[in-house]
Amino acid sequence: MKKQCYFNQHNIKYIDYKDTDVLKRFLNPHGRIISRKRTGISAKYQRQLATAVKRARFMGLLPYVAS
């Protein structure tokens, strides 16, 4: 069965870098962004997600590398 896009399902139009609880779901235990293949997010939101994660990392809300 084809996985549906998380952000479409939850009616989230813009991914905000401050929503770290949501962003954390798409990071692996090392803090790396999980690929689209695994997340099942649409291309549009995967791009937004990547930008948001990188912004959150810059502001110290998410780690660059998690041990």
Partner: peptide, 12 residues
């Protein structure tokens, strides 16, 4: 939203 462990998320 994050607390809701939906099927697709669990899969992730």
């Amino acid at each position: 939203i994050a607390a809701e462990l939906t099927g697709s998320d669990r899969a992730i």
